[in-house]
Design a protein around this nucleic acid. Structure first.
Lengths: 325, 325
DNA sequence: CTGAAAGCGCTTACAG
DNA sequence: CTGAAAGCGCTTACAG
């Protein structure tokens, strides 16, 4: 195993100083064309590639963005939402020549917090994108004061943070309006874990729609279950018993479980849900679902983090109700 | 924004040299208890956290492992396989206090190759785990000669590489045996993209089983389609026309599409597939599927990369046919 | 346009 | 057990 070639080797071979090699490599500063070519030849011959850590130490720039993904909802959002947004983020980071450090967190806000804190304080990363927001989110409170740019996908509790989000209350309100237009008189709200802001925001939309249409409801008409098919499946019996004629659900996985159970019993219920994953299509009882545009959420998150001075600190990505059945 | 605290500040506050601070922090070498406490107090008071890049430069150790995920099959393996293995890898890396740099590749072997090459040559990472293997995989050929430990999830074309894999020929053979035991007389093989080794290996298992049972078949009985529900759905009409009585499929997504179409037409066909994702359960026509144990694959991959000298260079993870219907 | 030098913030062999 | 010094491999302000 031959020793790694350094800037010194290239400089020696080209007969110039290491400063000059550095200038050629970084390509930021004028270098005499002849010199440039000499250096380039030496680089090509040696296969020189600058040492990442040395450069990072000198420039205080790591070209790395951490992405924090929470296991709890990522199990839930039918996975494909999370893979989609990761993919979109990766693609856009690539465009900026940045790498992605992926951190799985377990929803336990404090272990996530210490991990993120240490990444930031040790200067291993240049910024962070966080893919979910909980109530009293310790990580977010820390990031808000952090020296590194941070983007939250979701609604942070502070207006000073960079964020990209859907207008969840409005999206849910529209979806419920649609349900009502189709004849719903007694809808139930079924949300995922109530600790997540996204659940709360969609519930708000549900309530707005009902109030607008003078439909009575109370807190017993709002259910919170795990982000899973099974949870929806099990809840269905309760929904049947309570004789709801429709459900506004925050997540396709849960909705799928509900639809499955109704279908099994030869019953029918109107459903709208979120994420427009393939579950909403392949169900035997296809249901309408709000497409939240994962691709664009991911892309905008990266654009924001790369341009933290942008005037627009809160980006809202449009949603679209995909109607089925 | 106050200046970042460095080892120098801590040393000054504690009244010792920076060497001593370093020793206390790294905790590898004996330090007088009194001294240790002085230093510790200074660390606590200042909130000192060692600079990652500086340490990495000095130790030539990045504590970062790159994970390469290929978009093509990851769309296909019903996604959940890939999220599962990423999750397992993340969990195990965490155990070793390593971070994960996630690289999405687009299946175009040459862009992936140059990305990986640059990560390695710039010393940004300590090792790589690659989640899929193609025929003539440029990246793998490069990694094989690389100075950094590399683990392939799948079957590499070289026995010298660290790898973790299922015994795919055997797993498929067993699954097909099961199909035959259940009465299959004319099975089709349906695989994903033929460029992936995993497709080839499972096909081999299919052929082995048929030969053993003296069932005639030829290459026209083997189909290769996209890793998608739609691809399976579309293929179904051909399968019906050719009057197959069963299908051995390499991927739940495809299998689901096939099952869906048969079901739609009020027809039935025996199916076995791979990955045991929830698609195999929720189908209206539930089918048996081989669980390839993503959790263990991920965990073993990390264990291998952390112990590259291990005697066992090729780890095989057991599979289990989950029987349904 | 180019080079010498200082600096980025650590680690570690060496000497005591 | 501890410190001074060299070194990791770059970048960049400064001077020419």
């Amino acid at each position: 195993m031959t020793r790694k070639v350094t800037i010194r080797d290239v400089a020696y071979l080209a007969g110039v100083s290491i400063s000059t090699v550095s200038r050629v490599v970084s390509n930021k500063v004028n270098v005499n064309e002849i010199t440039r070519q000499k250096v380039q030849r030496a680089i090509d011959k040696t296969g020189y590639e600058p040492n990442y850590t040395a450069r990072a130490l000198a420039t205080k720039n790591t070209d790395t963005i951490a992405v924090i993904i929470d296991r709890t909802p990522s199990k839930g959002f039918a996975n494909s939402f999370f893979l989609d947004i990761l993919d979109a983020i990766a693609t856009r980071l690539n465009f900026y020549s940045k790498d992605m450090l992926l951190v799985f967190s377990d929803g336990k806000n404090s272990t996530e917090y210490s991990k993120v804190k240490s990444l930031i304080q040790s200067n291993k990363i240049d910024g962070v994108i966080k893919l979910s927001v909980q109530k009293n989110d310790k990580t977010i409170n820390f990031l808000k004061e952090s020296s590194k740019p941070t983007v939250v996908v979701g609604r942070p509790n502070s207006k000073n943070m960079l964020s990209v989000n859907n207008d969840n209350p409005k999206a849910m309100q529209n979806a419920v309006n649609f349900l009502i237009k189709k004849g719903a008189k007694k809808p139930a709200f079924v949300g995922g874990n109530k600790e997540y802001i996204v659940t709360i925001d969609r519930q708000e939309g549900f309530e707005l729609a009902l109030k607008k249409h003078m439909i009575n409801y109370d807190e017993n008409d709002m259910y919170y279950v795990d982000f899973s098919i099974d949870a929806g499946y099990e809840l269905a019996d309760t929904l049947i018993e309570k004789e709801y004629d429709s459900v506004a659900c925050t997540d396709d996985l849960i909705a799928y479980g509900i639809a499955k159970r109704y279908n099994e019993l030869g019953k029918f219920i109107k459903i709208i849900s979120f994420n427009n994953t393939y579950l909403s299509k392949i169900s035997n009882l296809p249901f309408s679902s709000v497409d939240i545009n994962a691709k664009l959420l991911g892309r905008e998150a990266v654009d924001l983090i790369m341009n933290p001075q942008a005037s627009q600190k809160q980006t809202i990505v449009d949603t679209k109700l995909i109607v089925r059945s």
